[in-house]
Nucleic acid binder design. Structure first.
Lengths: 328, 328
DNA sequence: CTGTTAGCGCGTTCAT
DNA sequence: ATGAACGCGCTAACAG
């Protein structure tokens, strides 16, 4: 691979001069510049960002840690991040944590060894050890989706979104509202959305029965089974079900339709996420849009801020939008 | 940031010794090793892959160029790539070409400047200039999705998939089959799938009318409009429509259902891609599964081969599976 | 305007 | 078993 030295020799100048035309810093004589450019042209020389980074202590790479690489949310977010970051010449180094805390920490180290200029972490569980790890990190880091104490984080407004959705059901006249959540270890999706539901029920003096509550994971079949459980064990059946995820909600619909129920006549359903599926499933699913793409952009911007001026850790909460559709 | 020199000083040994315990090469006295380890522990020192790479000429990073980062296909593929590559300690540097040839070439250079060990290119249009660019590349590269002459490429079997789908329609008794494609500049999706359709029609002595053919892009609304065009201009209306993409097909369904038609009673539909949508749309869409995740794995494996032993450019064609569902 | 010198952080002979 | 010396490719400080 051709290096700056080769170019220097070919153009019979010093490396320094080559470097100067490369970064067009200071002035280089027209003739020298031309000879250098010619040599570069001829050899197809491309400077090593690697060596440069070693010298200037900056890589123009930011690491992005995802819980799952092939989900709609992830790809939307990454898209937004890239849109913003690429404008400033940064590239993205991907890291897939596969929902494993161990891997999250591992990747944090890996990215550090690569001396990335910044890190964006889409966290799932906010473990204490992870928290410590990040705070000790000498690299600007911002978390997306989960609030991590002491760390710049941008979060969705899970609590209020859940409140609104629950209230929407109530306004439509529903009183018996089932809830399908996920593990509360997931502060955002598991805990906050559930709290929004519970609080809103309480504020409206509605009782919440145990057999209306179920827990699933992040996929469709788990929604199916959760609904089945509720349906089979409820002494009093719900007239509406709030699933914390579109995919869960779609699993719910599957089960109910299999049972011959009519949605929304017999029972209403809502999810969260504004997945593409939610729009084309029949009946179309009521959900809330988190603007993931925009969230990615905002997060990237926060990171850029942090990388430029080492300021305090900020917190920001994103907006959302209820999308009322036929499922209710 | 703490460096190998700091550790050396703290442990009162030379850098060389530190390097030795890091890569546990040759023998280091127990005491020395302990002192080094202790210093590392205390400082949280993490070696710079950067500096190391400069020395050993290997970065353990591969670049992945995508046409569009937030599509189902892309994310499945990237997932597969990551699954395979991460097992060998490689990380992924993402590059988004946004379907622009110019950016594709630009990213090729960018990745080169980062001295990635390999490149995976999900190409869309196989331009001559791109072809030259890749062949001149001093970095092992493999293309996915498009056959690029002289370059290791793994492709989907677009031609036969299209044939099978068309034949399926014919076997069901259809004679008037419409076709919605994309620009033929896209060899795989545009040209080959169309050829499969045309050839199969011909082999069955079926005529293809101009007004049964339309062209769209890669989104749902474009399918809607293409179908509208066909529907409004056809002097003789088709009883089936083959869209080269699930998203196009879903747009088709939208239009037809809006017109009050019953699918599949009045008209049958099929797409390609096995998108999640295809499964949950009503009626469920007949499509073909390209096993994108597996494709990513295979591509990664090819790249690994190429990176280890500089062998010739290979070609391989992937399998596929017809998924017959209610839309026909 | 240009070259010399001196590292950036690390691995690798080659001695000892 | 250990260290000195050198170089990977590049930029920056300093002279001239």
């Amino acid at each position: 691979m051709v290096t700056i030295n080769d170019i220097a020799k070919m153009a019979s100048v010093s490396r320094t001069t080559v470097s100067r035309v490369l970064n067009n810093s200071s002035h280089v004589s027209k003739k020298a510049r031309e000879r250098v450019l010619e040599a570069i042209e001829k050899t197809g020389y491309i400077p090593s960002e690697h060596a440069k980074g070693l010298r200037v202590k900056q890589t123009n790479v930011v690491g992005v840690i995802l819980p799952k690489i092939s989900t709609e949310t992830s790809s939307r977010v990454v898209n937004g991040i890239d849109e913003e970051l690429s404008r400033y010449g940064y590239q993205i180094l991907l890291a897939n944590s596969n929902l494993e805390l161990k891997k999250e920490i591992e990747h944090l180290k890996l990215l550090q060894s690569r001396r990335v200029d910044g890190i964006i972490l889409m966290a799932t569980n906010v473990d204490k050890s992870l928290q410590e790890e990040i705070k000790a990190l000498p690299i600007p880091t911002v978390a997306l989706g989960q609030e991590i104490p002491g760390v710049t984080s941008v979060v969705y407004d899970d609590y209020h979104a859940a409140c609104d959705l629950t209230q929407l059901f109530i306004n439509k006249g529903h009183r018996k509202i089932a809830f399908i959540g996920v593990s509360e270890e997931d502060k955002a999706v598991g805990y906050l959305r559930k709290k929004g539901y519970l609080d809103t029920m309480k504020n409206n003096n509605l009782s919440v029965e145990d057999f209306w509550m179920a827990q699933g994971t992040f996929n469709i079949t788990s929604g199916y089974h959760a609904m089945k459980e509720i349906w089979e064990t409820s002494s009093e059946r719900p007239t509406a079900v709030f699933a914390v995820t579109d995919r869960l909600a779609i699993g719910v619909m599957e089960y109910l339709q299999e049972k011959g129920l009519n949605i929304p006549k017999d029972i209403s359903i809502a999810g969260i996420g504004a997945s593409e599926l939610s729009k084309y499933v029949r009946p179309a699913l009521t959900t809330v849009d988190y603007f993931n793409n925009e969230a990615g952009k905002v997060t990237a911007r926060h990171l850029l801020d942090k990388m430029l001026e080492e300021n305090e850790s900020k917190k920001s909460k994103l907006g959302y939008r209820l999308i009322e559709r036929d499922s209710l």
